[in-house]
Amino acid sequence: MIKRNKKKYELVDHKALWIMLIPVLIYFILFKYLPMAGVVIAFQRYSPFKGVLASDWVGLEYFRQFFSSIYFTRVLRNTLMIGLFDLLFGFPFPIILALLLNGLSNRHFKKLTQTITLLPHFVSFVVVAGIAINMLSPSTGVINALRLKLGLDSIYFLQEPKYFWGIFTVIKIIKESGFTAIIYLAALTTIDPTLYEAAICDGANRAQQLKYVTFPALIPTIVIMFIIKIGKIISISFEQILLLQNDVILSTSEVISTLVYRRGLVNADYSYATAVGLFETFVALVLVLSSNAIVRRIKNDSSLW
């Protein structure tokens, strides 16, 4: 009995594991938790010379400034509209792509097409933005060359505010659909093949198989992916928008995250930018936590499906 207890104690060497964690703890404290604590400067008139400890406290001053400025409605509208465009057009596309890929019977062709559709995901956004800017250019762009051939006017796409949401959505669709489709393709491989055999015995053609077997089997994955996507609706990557943005189209392309960049890192308006960032963090957190809770409930309630 004593021997067993001793053995159990030795199953894990706590000290060794803590030693292993030392670099991890240092990293997380310095570059994750310290910045988290650093958001207090949103409530201060932060001065780099005085530091966090000596700067004056101003309460909600910067939040009030942000909420009452014209930027608030503008960046909120742009963020939500870009998110909504992505939801309406960007969400269905990977599903369609996965169904198309799944419908291919030639294995080599299937593999080749998956390789091609996945490729844009691994190309840097700098390159993607560079290609897009060149292709949309009014003087040397292919798209305007095509418009001229068709007898239409050349358009400076990236200088007209009204095109930005559409352009950004199309680029995201081309870049990310192949990657997101993998998740749906994985769900499709779990469908019991006997369901198809039964459907074929009942005389179902391939369109009917899609409607009565494939699509219903995908619905749980679609619902979960949709809720996750809503949870991320305001988290638009500043790294991507920033590359396609220019001063002329700020009215539609300025989102919360790029405003934080511009005010904070370009203008060194640290407290204001941190306040805006904190507002985004709060809204994003509420959205993500609610969407996670809903997903968990659906997964536990799997008898529904």
Binding site: L34, P35, M36, G38, I41, S257, V260, G277
Partner: peptide, 16 residues
């Protein structure tokens, strides 16, 4: 740390 948005951390991380 997974739940903290990159936008919110941008300025504090830079200052750290």
């Amino acid at each position: 740390t997974m739940f903290i948005s990159a936008t919110g951390m941008m300025i504090p991380l830079f200052l750290v």
